[in-house]
Design a protein around this nucleic acid. Structure first.
Ligand code: FES
Ligand code: FES
Lengths: 153, 153
DNA sequence: ACAAATCTGACTAATTTTGTCAAGTATAAA
DNA sequence: TTTATACTTGACAAAATTAGTCAGATTTGT
């Protein structure tokens, strides 16, 4: 699997924030209820997202989290990378420490393949924004008017 | 990371077999030396590859492993899936057991994204064959004639 | 018989994942 | 000013996965 629950849940939470964009701070408690993800775990994810400057926090009562910029400006790739670290097919394409380095990169035919795959993955993730997902979701929900929310997550 | 060392090393070994295709059985000992991967670990990987009918074995002295079909017939996707199981962006796209299932698939806007990403990944992996890699490798080695092998792994 | 090789299953240390928990700090509202 | 709300931080830990290792059994060419 490319993503762990960190990435999966984190993107879900960011989409939740995007849906409620412009409505003031959204509390973790509310997100937790809607998405069915543990409050404590969301806190952990939001540490990373805040550190990556994708969200900001408001403390105190009526506080919560907000997207730091418009949903149209936030690429899913940014969210995923903030949560999971660099996305790559194998280690040597995005080396994190010295032991990830291959010495034969310049002549390695497989490196070319893994690099091509890595680029494709990031391309897909970076060609989708939170706003794009919101729009797709609204289109989906038009076909199922019974549902109370604008669309399901 | 999309692939663990199982996938990374396994593809390396399969490419090694492809390079020596038509030269009779190749022993794990030789592959281990060339690729710098533990003999014991390669044995484990080859269990999966044999079970997936990608390689066959010849026992006894002068024995070893051979590709079961021509390098042009073997897609990297087949190799990777044999080693790592189904390749997917997140669990619910290729559910392995009941707890991987999401109940909201039909209305989930994120499922659409993860599915698109998963398809793209498999598309890249399935559009490359072992022969393709061999050819690319030979092209690379033409530019570095000093090297003893046809090309480096 | 012997040696070269595959084959099998058990075992394990290290790491990552998937969280939980407790004790803080900041602040808006009463 | 008090209080309740909500973010913040760091520690902790069970479970799963990764990345192998190892011992022994089996097969077979010479
Ligand atoms: S696998 Fe890293 S350079 Fe070949
Ligand atoms: S994440 Fe599985 S259906 Fe939405």
């Amino acid at each position: 699997m490319l993503l762990s629950t960190k990435g999966e849940y984190g993107v879900r939470c960011m989409l939740d924030l995007a849906i409620h964009y412009g409505q003031g701070p959204i509390s973790i408690r509310d997100i937790s209820k809607r998405e069915g993800i543990s409050k404590n775990y969301i806190e952990q994810l939001f540490v990373r997202l805040r550190h990556a400057k994708l969200i900001k926090s408001v403390r105190g009562p009526k506080g919560g989290y907000l997207l730091i910029s418009q949903p149209r400006r936030i690429k899913i790739g940014d969210v995923v990378r903030a949560l999971e670290g660099p996305i790559a097919a194998i280690r040597c394409v995005q080396p994190q420490n010295s032991k990830d380095l291959c010495e034969r990169i310049s002549t390695c035919v497989l490196y070319i393949l893994w690099k091509r795959l890595t680029d494709k993955i990031n391309e897909v993730l970076d060609s989708t924004t939170l706003e794009g997902l919101c729009r797709e979701g609204m289109k989906l929900s038009k076909h199922r008017l019974a549902h109370p929310l604008p669309f399901q997550i």
